[in-house]
Every structure is written in structure tokens, then in C-alpha cells.
């Protein structure tokens, strides 16, 4: 029995457990975002005077942010495909592209925040803006940590190559990044598009 057991390949199982554990983390993070979405929806009507989403947000600008993030979600998939074939330089190139797109997204978001605060529409102004900054800011914070992770990942791949552990970490990073784009679909729809429709 024990001979039979040792003859089986022992390794592959552990990696899939790590991925599963990370998946469980992502699902609990979904619950965090769900509570922020609920808070935002409840506070949606509590604006200061007529200053609702329709006046404060620029839809074309937000569409630009969305396209950057969606494309970056696609390019990190390209990095995974290159990693699957063991093409180290291609993985690094796709990671760089993903990083630039992600940094562009974060830069646009910070520009939007700065403009809002400068015009006096900070989180302290109304319940609606508190909910908005908490929800979108939490997503932005996730993006920032994802970008840091991406830099660390690129350095690791550069130094150690595409071994089993780097491949595993890259898989987790890609799951995290795709997950952030999933959350953004709902921010785009509920906060911005529905905000523009309902005023």
C-alpha cells in the first residue's frame, strides 16, 4: 500500500490546494465589496443639494478607465499563456504591459478623486460621496497592491526563471487581477452608468 502511494506523483496536488485557498480569499473579498456596494446603494440618495452622480462624473473618462482595466485583464492572461509555454521574456513583456495599463487606470482614478476634492466634493460633503469614495477607493487600493505584487513578480521571474513556485505565484496574481476587473464591471454599471441615468 505504502509502495503504491510513493509511486504516485506527490507534487501536483499541493499547488491546486494553494490556488483553491486563494480562491476562497477572493470570494470573501467579494463579500467585503458587496457590503460596500450595499452601503453605497443605501446612501445613493443622500446627496448634498443636487450634487448627484450625473453632475459629478464624466462618462467618457470612466469608459477610458474601464477599457484600460479590461485590456490589462486580457494582457495578464497573455502572460499566463506565455508562462505555460515557458517563454520567460514574453511573460516579462506582458507583465510590463499589464503594469502600464494598471498604473494608467490608477492614475486616472486618482485624477478623478483629486478633481472632486478640489471642487469641494470630498467624502466629507455628503453620505453619497462617503459611500462613493469608500467603494471606489477600496477598489483602487486593491489595484495599488496588485501593481506592487506585479513588480515583485517580475523581479522574481527575472531572477529565478519560470520554476514551479513562480508559476504558482503568477497564477495567483492573474486570478487577483481578473477578480479586480470583475468588481470594476459592477462599479462601472452601478456607480457610474446608473448614477448618470438616475441623476
Amino acid at each position: 500500500m505504502s509502495e503504491l502511494h510513493s509511486a504516485l506523483p506527490a507534487a501536483p496536488h499541493d499547488d491546486s490546494k494553494t490556488v483553491f485557498g486563494f480562491w476562497v480569499y477572493l470570494m470573501t473579498d467579494c463579500v467585503l465589496f458587496a457590503s460596500l456596494f450595499a452601503t453605497f446603494s443605501v446612501l445613493r440618495g443622500s446627496t448634498f443639494g443636487p450634487h448627484g452622480g450625473a453632475e459629478l462624473f464624466s462618462l467618457p473618462f470612466v469608459l477610458g478607465e474601464t477599457l484600460l482595466l479590461l485590456t490589462s485583464s486580457f494582457t495578464i492572461g497573455m502572460a499566463i499563456l506565455a508562462a505555460q509555454r515557458g517563454l520567460k521574456s514574453q511573460v516579462l513583456a506582458w507583465l510590463t504591459v499589464t503594469f502600464i495599463l494598471g498604473a494608467g487606470f490608477l492614475g486616472m482614478e486618482l485624477t478623478e478623486f483629486t478633481n472632486l476634492v478640489r471642487e469641494g466634493n470630498s467624502w466629507a460633503r455628503s453620505g453619497f460621496l462617503s459611500g462613493f469614495f469608500t467603494l471606489v477607493g477600496t477598489h483602487g487600493l486593491h489595484i495599488a497592491s496588485g501593481l506592487i505584487w506585479m513588480v515583485v513578480m517580475a523581479v522574481q521571474i527575472h531572477l529565478r526563471g519560470l520554476g514551479r513556485s513562480t508559476l504558482r505565484r503568477l497564477t495567483l496574481l492573474s486570478l487577483f487581477w481578473h477578480f479586480l476587473d470583475l468588481i470594476w464591471i459592477f462599479i462601472f454599471t452601478i456607480v457610474y452608468l446608473m448614477g448618470a441615468v438616475q441623476g
Binding site: T18, L70, T71
Partner: peptide
């Protein structure tokens, strides 16, 4: 090279270009 030609952890099959392009 053989070592690298493996599936991504947690998946049974290798992921494909087709899947990402369709999704995008």
C-alpha cells in the same frame, strides 16, 4: 522545456488563446 510545458496550477487543461480572446 518539458518541465515548462505544463498546465497552470488548479486547472486540468492548459488554458488557450481562444478562451482569452473570446472573453475579451
Amino acid at each position: 522545456r518539458d518541465y515548462h510545458m505544463k498546465t497552470i496550477p488548479g486547472n486540468t487543461k492548459p488554458v488557450s488563446y481562444r478562451s482569452y480572446i473570446t472573453g475579451f
